[in-house]
Nucleic acid binder design. Structure first.
Lengths: 358, 358
DNA sequence: AGGGAAATTTGAATCGATCCAACGAAAGTA
DNA sequence: TACTTTCGTTGGATCGATTCAAATTTCCCT
């Protein structure tokens, strides 16, 4: 029964090799962490013992407890882990985070989870020096969880006005205003808005009351920016259809069906994300509508994909990578009080917008 | 000088709140880890004390030491961290890894480093239960480092014949053979090979001796597969130009310049990676050569980009995501002895290959 | 009230290292 | 030879939790 194969359990600790080499554990420790202060003869003896016993070097678990610093930052989201590698926005953001981490030698821990309980546990037990929280859906819960860890953390793209959490985002109202302004300047007067979620798990046309009750302030702000500009040029914003999507292809297409069923279809579509905008381009093309001939489309985010679509997408570019870099710096130098930063956005005019042909 | 602002240091430990609540630390611990076995009144008292003292829950650092398991797997590479988010191959692989991790609730730690010393340290001190090692350049060093940690690890795409390390890869010889066979079947007889690195930091035409001395066995195997098939149809393989690239745009273009400077330019290019192949498509198009009219190109890897290029790329697809999934499983169930798995590849015929027009 | 079972609580031991004050030995100085 | 330094080594304290056998309390029943 009892198999005598070598290496059943492997509890070889620093203390073991210290004993084997006939030195104190203090000295053994020094051999690995500050070899230069140990006499060469002793050093070699300890190294030999370690080698002989199959010791893999000081266990970071032990070191960690003493040292306190993990030297890694956690990036948390409520999406599945693959979100980090699939989603264009996330990828650019992660590239920025990577850069900053590489520069300081910090590692990255991806924290996420399928279900909610798992998520809580994963955040509670993440071995990190701080969190960067991706606030997409379920952002507030995530922020709450991160806050409970009492570690430095910053929220990215936070849809909340809670001034007590550090956050890095863009000026959504201004950005949306610039997008709308671009289209009104081109002469457009018939608009439709494809919105990001205002609350969880709902799609469809939204009423002003529903907008006011939005969970996601960022969505509300973008809408505010759009409508403010439209009304500035005398458009009756009450008549502008605002369709709430789930930021995916299905709900976006449903929204387009609804919007273009009108006998007065829009000549310009304001999409609150590039993802929505790109699906829109596809849908319009499949529908036989020309962009920008029949309809102009303006996105929001500035993901790389937007520059290679057909036609290339006019959009409001966020400094995504820069936001990632700043977030890392905010964590590592977690200095003063909570800092909320709002970065500028930039209108990038490409082929998806032109004057209306009417 | 001494600022009396609240919360200078924050050494609030479980023991502190235990004392504050007037219970033993054992009980305090139970309140957090197994609340159901603590009498409600006591539980609330401890919770209240924790709240009052700003205790963020049991520190994972402490728990970790006792528990032993980190519940995270490390993914290591010698490239900068952003490689994980930029490189198409890596992204698909990470998606597979993510999936498997999500399924088991494990986290992912990205381990990498700018310079070599940093790399060693980062691997030595990574808090993980095992490593997945991306063997691109510098693979052997990475494997060595990982092996020293005495943790379960598997090498992905390992360019080595060292049977003592667990590895997951594809049958490079067979895959390359299939690629070549596809082109010879189409009738091609004039070939050129754009190779991955045989050794570090060298590019240019390679001689058979240099091939034999290759550091990277995977590259050598692919070449073997190519040439074996070519000689099968009677082609003098000694005359087939083999240009070693660094798997980047610059060296690939240099290789193309060299190859197409010949007065007998190839009608078919065998590229050892999709990256090389895609650059090739671009270069040929810029040069005014039609693909597949004038030249056929076949890649290797099967990254998503290959399906949307102009023209779409014929390539040898590896089951990239599946490899990632298997790697995670190999780590987590690190069961028997070292397991080396070779997965099958698949020829995907797209628009970049056709019979030679000659 | 008394006895035993069940429910809680306690506190020492442990996880695997690092740090540091103190100590011993070898080398240098007067 | 006596007295400092310098260099290396030692071993106890500590990091922050979890675990578990033993002690204690509570509960139930006769």
């Amino acid at each position: 029964m009892a198999s005598l194969t070598a290496g059943n359990r492997r509890p070889v600790r620093l203390a073991d090799i210290a004993k084997a080499a006939g030195v104190s554990h203090g000295t053994a420790s020094n051999v690995f962490s500050r070899p230069e202060i140990v006499r060469e003869e002793v050093r070699e003896r300890v190294r030999a013992a370690a080698e002989a016993m199959g010791y893999g070097g000081p266990d970071p678990k032990g070191r960690l407890l003493r040292a306190g610093k993990v030297n890694a930052i956690g990036v948390a989201t409520a999406e599945p882990l693959s979100y980090f590698f699939d989603d264009p926005f996330a990828r650019v953001m992660m590239a920025g985070i990577s850069q900053a981490c590489d520069a300081t030698g910090a590692g990255i821990s991806l924290v996420s989870a399928a279900n909610n309980e798992q998520l809580a546990w994963n955040i509670q037990s993440a071995l990190v020096d701080g969190f960067i929280v991706f606030c997409i859906e379920g952002g507030s819960r995530l922020v709450e969880l991160a806050r409970e860890r009492k570690l430095p953390f910053v929220a990215l793209d936070l849809d909340s006005e809670d001034g007590s959490v550090a956050a890095i985002g863009v000026d959504n109202i201004a950005g949306a205003g610039i997008a709308a302004r671009h289209l009104t300047d081109l002469g457009h007067r018939r608009f439709a808005v494809l919105a990001l979620p205002f609350v969880d798990d709902r799609t469809g046309l939204v009423s002003p009351e529903q907008v006011r009750a939005a969970t996601y302030a960022g969505t509300r702000d973008r809408l505010t920016g759009y409508l403010r500009e439209l009304s500035r040029v005398g458009i009756d914003t009450a008549k502008v259809p605002v369709y709430e999507t789930a930021n995916d292809a299905a709900s976006t297409k449903a929204g387009l069906e609804t919007i273009f069923a009108s006998d007065q279809p829009p000549t310009a579509v304001l999409a609150m994300s590039d993802r929505i905008a790109l699906v829109t381009l596809e849908w319009l093309s499949a529908r036989g509508l020309n962009v920008p001939g029949d309809v102009s489309v303006v996105g929001f985010d500035g993901v790389p994909e937007a520059s290679v679509s057909e036609p290339p997408l006019t959009t409001i570019a966020q400094p995504i990578a820069e936001m990632g870099r700043l977030a890392v710096r905010a964590i590592l130098e977690s200095d003063g009080p909570v800092s909320r930063q709002q970065l500028p956005v930039e209108l990038i005019v490409r082929g998806s917008s032109a004057p209306p042909c009417g």
